[in-house]
């Protein structure tokens, strides 16, 4: 239970929407340099789980403890949680379509977030280089000054991953990163996520079993708001309950 082995610990969390129990006594933990895939059928509570961790939804009961100093994330605003080191990539790519790729990345770049600091902010050479670097990583090096609304769907996904990189969080919550990508792009994504997991905690929510298998990491199966099974992909796919509720269909 010490902070050095657990980066994020969610325990006994429940949340109810108008009588519908979306998350039911969920417990979950992840270490500082670990990759974890979260799978589950529709309505299993995957997105709500991410909403709780990132502060969008406040749970009715339970604890969410973060980092070396064991800070409780409950009650903190989304922005503070993000500044504490949790980055999120949405299921549908949400980049700022009217702004250029460079602006999107610059905005995400780790820096002071206060209004006055932002007003007087000027990019250092180092920061410019970092933006170029990330653009290179996500394959958008030549497109820095394009308006991001013009990018293809896959490119937008990449841009959003790039924004996550620029944010440099300790924990990355990635919702369906490979949706709408070509096989080659998927492979690239897998590699990128794997390399990220060497230094960061990464939680990937995914439907696609093949993709999860290729990530080659511990898998948590959610069902009706709680953890149904946890372990390697082979382990969970052999679990009869998992087969019944999810894979069997």
């Amino acid at each position: 239970m010490s902070g050095s082995t657990r980066l994020l610990e969610v325990s006994g969390v429940s949340v109810t929407f108008d009588g519908f129990r979306a998350i039911n006594n969920l417990s979950f933990a992840i270490g500082p340099a670990e990759m974890r895939a979260v799978i589950g059928p529709n309505g299993a509570g995957k997105t709500t789980f991410m909403d709780i961790v990132t502060g969008k939804t406040r749970p009715d009961t339970g604890r969410v403890i973060w980092g070396d100093e064991n800070i409780s994330l409950i009650g903190m605003s989304e922005a503070r949680i993000a500044r504490a080191g949790i980055g999120r990539k949405f299921q549908r790519p949400t980049v700022f379509e009217e702004q250029s790729v460079r602006d999107n990345l610059t905005m995400a770049l780790k820096a002071d977030r206060g209004p006055f600091k932002v007003l007087f902010w000027k990019p250092s050479a180092e920061e410019r280089a970092k933006v170029e670097d990330i653009a290179d990583t996500i394959g958008l090096a030549g497109q820095l000054d394009r308006t991001s609304g013009e990018l293809s769907h896959g490119q937008k996904q990449w841009l959003e991953i790039g924004m996550l990189l620029a944010q440099d969080p300790q924990l990355l919550l990635v919702d369906e990163p490979a949706a709408g990508m070509t096989p080659a792009e998927r492979e690239h994504t897998t590699d990128l996520l794997k390399s990220l997991a060497k230094h960061h905690a990464v939680v990937v929510v995914e439907h696609d079993m093949e993709f999860v298998r290729r990530l080659d990491c511990k898998v948590t199966v959610l069902h009706e708001g709680s953890v149904l099974a946890e372990g390697s992909i082979d382990h969970v796919t052999k679990n009869q309950e998992v087969i019944d509720v999810y894979l069997g269909r």
Binding site: S77, A79, F90, F96, E97, Q99, M107, R113, M163
Partner: peptide
């Protein structure tokens, strides 16, 4: 950049850590 982003998607800006 930030204020136009707030206009377009304020929730997303929050998740980038901006107050």
């Amino acid at each position: 950049s930030v204020i136009r982003a707030i206009r377009d998607d304020e929730a997303r800006v929050r998740f980038l850590g901006y107050p």
